[in-house]
Amino acid sequence: MEDGQDAKIVVDGLNAWYGSVQALRDVSLTILDRKVTAVIGPSGCGKSTFIRCLNRMHEVAPHTRVQGKVTLDGQDIYAPGVDPVTIRRRVGMVFQRPNPFPTMSIFDNVAAGLKLGGLAPKAYLADIVEKALRQAALWDEVKYMLKRNGTALSGGQQQRLCIARALAVEPEVLLMDEPCSALDPITTLAIEELLQELSREYTIIIVTHNMQQAARVSDKAAFLFMGEDRTGFLVEYGDTKEIFTNPKDPRTEGYITGRFG
C-alpha cells in the first residue's frame, strides 16, 4: 500500500442480526490507519450497527449476533479468547448525545475509563486527564473548574468532554456515532476541526446523517443502503472526493444528491 495508506481495520463478509432481523449483509471494506472514514446512508441502513461491530459493542444488546471477520491490525477481534474489553479500549466510542456521567466532576469524567480499567497509577492521572482534555480542545475552557460537575458544561463542551474521556484510555481507533447531531452549527464546526487534528494520531470512523459534514471531514466514505428486506449493505466505498463529485453507483448518486433515501 502507499505511504499513509495502511490498513487499520479490515472487515470481511460482515453480517449482523438483532434476533431474527438481519441488520447488515456481507459488508467488506478496509479502514485506513489515521484517516477519517465517514459512514453515510439513510436511517435504518445499519450505519450504527456497522460501527458497533468494530469494537464488539453490537453483542452488548440482547439477542444479537455477528458473523464474518473483523481484524484490528491483523488480529481477529472475534476470535475465541479475545477480551472484548481490551478491544473496546483500543477502539473507543463517542455517542450522538453528549453523555457525561452526571454525578462526576469534569476531572473524574475524563479519568473514569482509566480508573475502571485500573489503567493509570494515581500519580499520572492528572497528567493523563490534562493531555486528553488538551487533545479534545477543552483544556483552556475547563482548567480552573475541573472539580465542577460535567453536566454544568454547554452541549459542545460536554461532547468534547466525552471525546476527552474516550481519548484518556489512549485508544487507536475512535468510533463516532453522529457526534454533532445534537450540537449547533458553530459547535459542530469546532468538533469537525477537532476531528482533523485527531486524525493525525487516531483512526476515526464517523457515522453522520449530514452529508456536507461527511464531505467536509472525511478522507474515505462508505455508503450503506438497504433493500426491501431492510437489511443494510455496502453500496460504494471510496475516496470522499470521488464519492461527492463522481460516484460510481447510481444509488450513491441518488442519495447524496438528495433524489432518494
Partner: peptide, 9 residues
C-alpha cells in the same frame, strides 16, 4: 443548494 455529484458537475 449545496449540489454534489452530477448536479455539481
Amino acid at each position: 443548494q449545496q449540489p454534489v455529484a452530477s448536479d455539481l458537475r
